[in-house]
Nucleic acid binder design. Structure first.
Lengths: 216, 216, 216, 216
DNA sequence: AATGAATGAGAATTCATTCAT
DNA sequence: CATGAATGAATTCTCATTCAT
């Protein structure tokens, strides 16, 4: 049993190694244009040996996706834990997740554009994760509505809209043409979403100032 | 000269024919996985003859993109012309463009996931069109702010956010998991965006009812 | 009949036009790498129309070869006519033909490297012309031997060797690496060949000076 | 290190294998008309696997050229070593190299007609080898001139002329029309070249008889 | 476990030639 | 005579995956 665990952990390690190597090239060339030889070279594992840890090239795609998604979802969970106030939670989530999209720009763009290359089974798993995430977001909004701080109907749709909005940075080639800083975008996003949830302007101003004060 | 025009129009026709044929398969298999043989077969043009009308496979990708983009932008222009009131214009734009994304779901998803395969020159042209479109959107919002019906800072960022939001339907695999109708999504979108621009709930309700009344 | 002649002459004209156009590109790209489209464009004749004047691409190759060969052979005949003295004739032939190879460098290299692409029938015709030319050269040498000015056995072999030697300039990429002028090469060739035919050094010196004097 | 050597030697072996296979078809069809499939089949290596040992089709052309050239240059070196007398050296060189051209007829014709297909880098390497070879030849002639056995000016040009002359057999389709044996051609060549270097007839006769006596 | 040589199907593109106008 | 659109076979080269060592 213990032996078995060791082997499994070794597998995970190797898979991570492959993921990291592959991602270096995926960023630049995309999934299809990256050959297994390149992945082998970039991850420092022999070409043949790769196939001890994955079955198909597609598996790597899935591993990469899972990795990035999990990082996003984990961050969401952390944010929600830090407060009990729905508005604070929401602001924190937007701030942190959008911050992550600044860092993971290439990875996220890659994932969005290559999800279609996944086969049924993998696709389902990724979509299931996403659905669960949106559900969690929906709960947050429902709570806010119940508490009377958010205003709106059909919180499931609202959750979907907001979650989608969070990925604006990687999905539109922002950095290439920006005359605005990342922080300006982040601020505008928070304001727009809060307003979209019916929170009055003054309250938003207040929140933002609070935050600014904390920072200094 | 007249001769020349005939030739050019014939070229365009053929290119359209190729586009339409190619798109049939692109939808299903994506750009890379679609072979030129398949495109030839699907468009009813001999394989070799394709190359009279395009130079590279990539050209087809560009033509498809351009075609879809232009349809969106044209629709935007039409909407803006139909009224002078910024709120009416905005509601009309959202309604019509999102409506188009319902129709062009596959095309738009395809475009978003394959833009990266365009080479520099084509990419620039596509991005230029997009930039121009966002600018036009920005003007609409600026006018609303000047007239005091919209509220918000940095209209360029707001325009970007809204434009992005409009592509939610094709970019998230909505249809696959929907428990909500397209119309419900559309309504939610309009409300969210109008609220995001600081329009009071009552005014929104009013607008929506007006519209509903007109329809009947 | 007269009509027929006109047609034939028109054909020849067009074929020349094609030859000249084709050669412009053959020089640079070689036979295989030159497409019929390029030949059509370079000769100012429509692609389809080309096939009224030739049957296959190969025909053009033959026409070009024939044209160049004839120019060389004609020059030979002229040289021989200008004197009755075998030495004078030989010197004149070498001077003029090598001079021509300076001018026709690209054409001759092209011919030598592409003769293999000719089919049987054309090949035979080209080789027949060559054989006849070597025969004529052989006669010249035989006459010199009979008159006691040339010394050597097997004049057929000697003729072959000399004829081959005359093509040194185009066949070795001379111009690219020359530290010697074309004239120096020509002089060296004449001296070497005359010596090879057993003409004493002093006589050669004499001939060369004569020529130099004439020139001034 | 030793491992590395093994791999390299294996590479060379495979490359030789490819060369030999390719040459079988190149002889008959020329470079352009020979497909990679045919080369794979003829060399007994899988089509895809070919590309482990070469990068482009052109590489094979280079390898073939290099191989033939080296055989010629090596033979030259051997000949020069066997004697200290310039005349003996020269006669030996002509005899041996022309002998080789009898054997390598197809290969040499192939090389001459296909050198143009080499790209810049390879071309330079081939030309560099050739230049070096002609230089060595020039040294031989210079020595003879210094010792007073050869007579002539501009030994560099003479070397070029003689070296060129040595390739007469493969470059003119000799075998197809020969009424003379290879030996007769060889004899005529030696006589012509020696005469061209100003060696008196009697001395040549002497040399040739010597050789003939040795042979028996 | 680890290696990289081997495989051959399949990709985009080009070409000489024909044919309807 | 003249045109150039149309054809589809043939080309080089790449790739994921397997397999012997």
């Amino acid at each position: 049993m213990i032996e078995n665990d060791k082997i499994k952990s070794r597998r995970r390690e190797r898979q991570q190694q492959i993921c990291r190597g592959a991602m270096k090239i995926f960023r630049v060339k995309g999934f299809h244009a990256t050959s297994m030889r390149e992945i082998a070279a970039a991850s420092g594992i022999g070409l043949g040996n790769l196939y001890h840890y994955i079955r198909k090239k597609e598996d790597i795609l899935f591993l990469v996706q899972k990795d990035v998604m999990d990082r996003l979802y984990d961050r969401f969970d952390e944010c929600v834990k830090q407060s009990k106030d729905p508005v604070d939670q929401l602001v924190s989530v937007i701030r942190e997740l959008v911050g992550l999209t600044f860092t993971l720009k290439e990875e996220m763009l890659f994932i969005y554009t290559e999800t279609k290359s996944l086969d049924r089974k993998y696709m389902r798993e990724i979509l299931a994760g996403e659905t669960q995430f949106v559900k969690a977001f929906e709960s947050l909004i429902r709570k806010g509505i119940r508490q009377g701080v958010f205003h709106g109907e059909k919180p499931d749709l609202i959750a979907n809209i907001i979650v989608f909005t969070l990925s604006i940075y990687p999905l539109r080639g922002w950095s290439t043409r920006r005359r605005r800083s990342n922080d300006e975008l982040l601020d505008a996003l928070i304001r727009f979403v809060l307003k979209g949830l019916g929170i009055p302007d003054e309250a938003i101003q207040h929140k933002m100032k609070q935050r600014a004060r904390k920072k200094t």
